[in-house]
Design a protein around this nucleic acid. Structure first.
Lengths: 340, 340
DNA sequence: TGCTTCAATGTGAACGTTACCATTCGGGGC
DNA sequence: GCCCCGAATGGTAACGTTCACATTGAAGCA
């Protein structure tokens, strides 16, 4: 093995460029105040040596790690993967790196995750797919670190800002569409109620159903998976079908479709089906799935922007929303609206 | 604002426990050599103050960051999300945190990403969904940092170890199954050829088809999305259908199914369809999708294990595989095998 | 008792950077 | 020609840890 080929430090760059390491630091941090020819000399030395700043030393001295912790449920990576990606690239652009912490949905994660996040030294934390089990950990972290949650209504812990898509509005759009297309009875195949999003969708469903005088029933809760939708739909087939089934997410809707097909039911003629999320495959289900599209990427960027404001102390641009509207995407799994 | 409520340091813990900071360090790093009563005193002080080690200082002194960089394609989070999750939790268990770096499939990512990874100070790097565009960046990183790639055959850059699922074997299993169920002509709807996995599946297809004397054709390449599968299948319907269509991944297979349904073709009677990945929704497509299941979670753990060996210099347990076998999952989108 | 020995703990220095203050140097105003 | 000023750069200290070594104290043994 090589005798520890130590990465070059500022001192190495400095001696190569014939300046002091302080000048190197200045070239990196406030290039404006160093004379152009010195600056280019230093920059050349930097590229020649392949120098990169030692992150640890920098963090130690500045007490800022340039790290953002991202706490997310493992299973959630399937759905809002776009949020994750958007956050990461926006963070990179702002000079931060993203520290990923996943948590199993059913982990007893309070102690461990909280400690992990705290110990990670992140400047701020983003909670991406929020469920009840995360709340204690998040609350603990929030006492010493800025936290922004991407969530329906949020881990209402003190110090936690929330950015989200209006899930209730999404549910309302679904119900209105179903009402307009002639549905009288609607069943909501609910998601796991320890997830904030699932709860918000359920509440939205109940309000909307009442508002429109529909016959609304809730079954479940399921666990976001196709199998849950499949099982719930089979139960419904046995016990009597409504005009429409509104699944808590696309995966459950896929399971619902499958069960209905097995029973040779026609969609949407016998039953209409609606999902939520507009995930990648939704458009190509059979029939293509009417669903609610969430602006996952915008959401990620928005959350990061908010966190950066918290971290760097500047104001949020006025008019920045904290809630984004979802968008109903009508496809073939529901009856067409009359286009008189 | 509070006047910078500095987090407690070892010195704070030490003075509270009435020992020197060195003793605190020892309690944390080699508890065995400090007297039990001192140890408990220190530990109590630690919990009372909510002390956590300053990661930056530790990294600075030890020249190890306890960070593992994970480079992945953004779109890949949809598929092998399990790999990501498995890696993260295994890493946490081993005392490492995961730094996430995503890259758009079509980014001109060479310079930027390479610099990012290098500058991140990660002790090692894991490349999760490998495509051609990553190679320069990965090669650059590999010169100064251990790199393990999770990939078919890999960015063959010097110093990059590879762990993967045997994609060719998967393709072979598919073709054998199709041959046994009476298919004579098979079309492969290929994936993007700058992805190593896609290329391996294509090659596996070609070998297997020749081996079994089938009439094999390749169409595409597609871009992993359902729409690509949909478009390719529509072309096929127009130009003449084979007995079976083998899509490069499940998403493309979903698009294929959709197109076939639109043309009122029966699956598998008129055309059989096979996917790859066994993603969450595959079982509940209509009909349920025959596909190749990849042990994503095992793969993630394996990759991390390899990287840790590289990092910490110990030997890989003998008999540890570097290639995992996939498993064909036969469902209803292909004809049943004769069970004589 | 006096010496060695070892276990337990303390002290000093260093990791690579940035904040702060000191120094140098050339030029403009009197 | 003197002083002062500001621009450019250099030097020193400190962030919180860990490593290597120094110190302490009690036990073991002649």
């Amino acid at each position: 093995m090589d005798p520890a080929p130590r990465r070059p430090s500022m001192a190495d760059v400095a001696s190569r460029a014939g300046v002091s390491y302080q000048t190197v630091s200045r070239v990196l941090n406030e290039p404006g105040i160093v004379r152009p020819d010195t600056r280019t000399r230093v920059q050349q030395a930097i590229t020649e040596l392949g120098y990169t700043r030692n992150r640890a030393a920098r963090a130690l001295k500045t007490t800022r790690s340039s790290l953002i912790g991202m706490l997310t449920d493992g299973s959630a990576l399937f759905g809002p993967a776009e949020t994750t990606t958007a956050i990461e690239s926006a963070a990179r652009e702002a000079g931060y790196s993203v520290l990923l912490t996943t948590v199993g949905a059913h982990d007893d994660c309070e102690r461990e995750i909280g400690a992990e996040l705290l110990g990670s030294g992140a400047d701020g934390v983003l909670v991406v797919a929020a469920h009840e089990g995360m709340v204690p950990a998040v609350a603990a972290v929030a006492r010493s670190t800025p936290v922004v949650a991407v969530s329906a209504q949020a881990p209402r812990a003190p110090g936690v800002e929330v950015v989200g898509v209006d899930q209730q509005l999404g549910a309302l759009q679904v119900i209105e569409h179903l009402a307009r297309t002639g549905a009288r009875s609607v069943v909501h195949a609910a998601g796991p109620q320890d997830w904030f999003d699932a709860r918000a969708r359920l509440e939205g469903f109940e309000h909307a159903v009442e508002l429109h005088g529909l016959d609304g029933t809730v079954v479940g809760p399921g666990d976001w998976t196709p199998r849950a939708g499949y099982d719930l739909a089979n139960d419904l087939v046995r016990e009597g079908l409504p005009d429409a089934i509104f699944a808590a997410n696309d995966m459950m809707a896929i399971g619902v479709l499958h069960a209905l097909h097995e029973h040779r039911l026609r969609i949407p003629e016998d039953v209409a089906v609606v999902g939520f999320d507009n995930t990648l495959g939704a458009e190509f289900q059979v029939p293509s799935l009417t669903t609610v599209s969430q602006p996952f990427a915008d959401l990620g960027r928005l959350a990061l922007q908010r966190l950066l404001c918290l971290l760097e102390g500047h104001e949020l641009p006025p008019g920045t929303p904290s809630t984004l509207p979802p968008r109903l995407v009508v496809r073939r799994s529901t009856r067409p609206e009359r286009t008189h």
